[in-house]
């Protein structure tokens, strides 16, 4: 799925990284606990979170993720936007709640296991 499609599906506002909207991603994870993201995530390109601090951007960077979606229209700090921009990450915010946003992306096929149809 293209990052641009994620933006459309989640009705999201792009905060930085417009040049990467054409990039493909294959899976996503949703968590407010960065320790868990660092522990369990593997090759997942998108992070959905309601957590707002600079460690969200660094965690995504460490995990080679390419896109962060802030849920519930929370407003990230200027520092987060700047860090994301410097790191080459797409940062967007969506009015959807974490559960809804995850569901929309999963239903649209992002990271969906084949056996789930």
């Amino acid at each position: 799925m293209k990052i641009g499609e994620i933006k459309e599906l989640l009705n999201a506002e792009l905060l930085c990284g417009e040049e990467y909207l054409d990039h493909d991603v294959f899976a996503a994870c949703c968590s407010d606990m960065m320790s868990d993201v660092l522990a369990f995530v593997k090759d997942q390109g998108v992070l959905l979170t309601g957590l707002l601090n600079s460690q969200v951007i660094r965690t995504a960077n460490m995990m080679d993720m390419v896109c962060i979606v802030i849920v519930r229209n929370k407003v990230p700090t200027e520092e987060m936007i700047e860090l994301a921009s410097d790191t080459g990450l797409v940062l967007m915010r969506s009015p959807l709640r974490a559960y809804e946003a995850s569901g929309v992306l999963y239903y649209a096929g992002l990271g969906r296991r084949e056996e789930d149809g």
Partner: peptide, 27 residues
């Protein structure tokens, strides 16, 4: 041990302190 943490709640609110730090480092 995974999940063992002495971090305070204010650290958990920042997204850390899940007791995964040292196990992750080993992993």
């Amino acid at each position: 041990q995974e999940g063992f943490s002495t971090a305070r709640d204010n650290i958990r609110a920042l997204g850390f302190g899940a007791g995964m730090g040292l196990p992750n480092m080993k992993k």
